[in-house]
């Protein structure tokens, strides 16, 4: 089954930021916004929930620390005792660097894997990009047409996009569904964007 998205293409991040606010003020929620670089304030403007990726990072990091400390304690003081520089077998100060490294390793690998899974990335299939120009210099706002299937809504959104500065508005069919973002429970307070 094909998935249809209404796509608005913008040329400038400030215009995009204002457009996001404007569209949400009219009561429409975009499915996703794609930008070639991180745009400050975009998450707030879209009403996105705060990411939980850092919590995952902390949990993986803690697992890494515990793993390192248990493994070293077992190896150095039970399994294979070696005298190093006359120090005790259980030498806590020496475990610091390895615990630190494993904390970082577990946290970063764990976060990467979770991030990939959550976003539906896979090595088994090619990524399907909504509009290739988002990897270059265009900013794209996408609406899910499963959510807005009424003709009146589509006309209204198209109008809003054009009016807020979109260069181009079109409908795109995708093989795969775009992963949905989590929106704040209250829909997020609509933030007036900053004028740089």
């Amino acid at each position: 089954m094909k998935h249809k998205y209404l796509v608005g293409v913008y040329n400038d991040d400030d215009v995009l930021l204002d457009a996001v606010t404007q569209v949400r003020k009219e009561g429409y929620q975009m499915h996703e916004v794609f930008t070639p670089f991180p745009v400050h304030g975009l998450d707030e403007a879209m009403g996105l929930q705060d990411t939980r990726l850092h919590t995952i990072g902390f949990v993986f990091g803690a697992i890494g620390t515990l793993f390192a400390l248990t493994a070293m304690s077992y190896i150095m003081s039970i399994d294979w005792k070696v005298i190093v520089g006359g120090k005790p077998f259980f030498s806590f100060p020496a475990y610091g660097p390895i615990s630190f490294e494993l904390t970082v390793l577990f946290a970063s690998v764990g976060m990467t894997v979770v991030y990939y899974i959550r976003n539906g990335f896979s090595v088994l299939r090619d990524a399907e990009i909504l509009d290739p120009r988002i990897t270059d210099d265009k900013f794209v706002m996408a609406f899910c047409l499963k959510k807005y299937h009424e003709e009146a809504d589509i006309t209204k959104i198209t109008g809003l996009l054009k009016q807020s500065g979109a260069e181009e508005v079109y409908v795109k069919e995708m093989e795969n569904e775009l992963e949905a973002n989590l929106i704040k429970k209250d829909g997020g307070v609509i933030v007036e964007s900053h004028h740089h």
Binding site: G85, G86, K87, P93, A94, G96
Partner: peptide, 12 residues
């Protein structure tokens, strides 16, 4: 703190 402590502890 750790760098100072650990190196001194290790070199002894």
């Amino acid at each position: 703190f750790y760098s100072q402590f650990m190196l001194i502890w290790y070199a002894n």
